[in-house]
Write a protein that binds this DNA or RNA. Sequence first.
DNA 1: CCTATTTCCCAGTATAATAGTATGTTGATA
DNA 2: TATCAACATACTATTATACTGGGAAATAGG
Lengths: 142, 142
Amino acid sequence: MLISTKGRYALRVLVDMAEHSGQGYITLRDIAGRQDISEKYLESIVKELVRHELVTGLRGKGGGYRLSKAPEDIGVGDVLRFMEGGLAPVACLEEGHKVCPRASVCRTLTFWRGLDEAIRQYTDGYTIADLMRTEDGNDYII
Amino acid sequence: MLISTKGRYALRVLVDMAEHSGQGYITLRDIAGRQDISEKYLESIVKELVRHELVTGLRGKGGGYRLSKAPEDIGVGDVLRFMEGGLAPVACLEEGHKVCPRASVCRTLTFWRGLDEAIRQYTDGYTIADLMRTEDGNDYII
DNA sequence: CCTATTTCCCAGTATAATAGTATGTTGATA
DNA sequence: TATCAACATACTATTATACTGGGAAATAGG
């Protein structure tokens, strides 16, 4: 599946924060309400975003979270790699994976490398600012 | 991870069969030996390939498997979709997934559609024949 | 100082998928 | 008819996912 709820939710949270910046710190309760995601589960996601310095938290009354950078400086590829722990399409291309002893005779390795690169190129071509610009009303019929 | 061992092994099996065609039917034992994959596990993978009419099996002495089509007529994208049950990068784009009620306001849907398309374009651009042409000796040092 | 608020921290849990293994049955060939 | 190899069914260990729960620490307003 490549992308789990962690990565999907993280992007939605970041876009939500970007759209509601200017209102100071934004609480998880507000985001959870708007995005229809469990507040408790969001905690674990935002924790990662804090750890990678994409958002900043403030405790107490009037506290919440806000983006640490401008939306155009937050790359979607980076967010997804942080949340998913890498975006490699196959195990043997994961960082830290032991080098496959078959690599020198592997007929498929070049193909996987290309797929990895295609995913990287695409995801690195987007920032949170780009996601914000996505028009309402996709062509889904609901 | 997008691609599990099922998809990875399936491609290796198909390339192996393509490279050893002309020798009639090829046994799972031979493929398992060459590819260093458990023969028993390969059974479950080849079963899927038979079901989708990519390979043909013959029982008994002198039996085994062989490709049902020419290598250049077997698309890598199709193989992976068969084995993985789809290649969608996110759950909401999977076939048969219930339409997301947030689709019309979703800031990320367009992005996911594009990623899905990029993966489709790339994987559909390869056939088993292309994988065979991949030169020995990738630039890995082993 | 007190209290409400909100992040922060740690721990547990149900479900499902992955990557197999084990034990047989059926059918083709020599 | 013996052998070989595909075909079929069922089971299992491990891991990841997607959460839930209980509390501790910090901040602001009264």
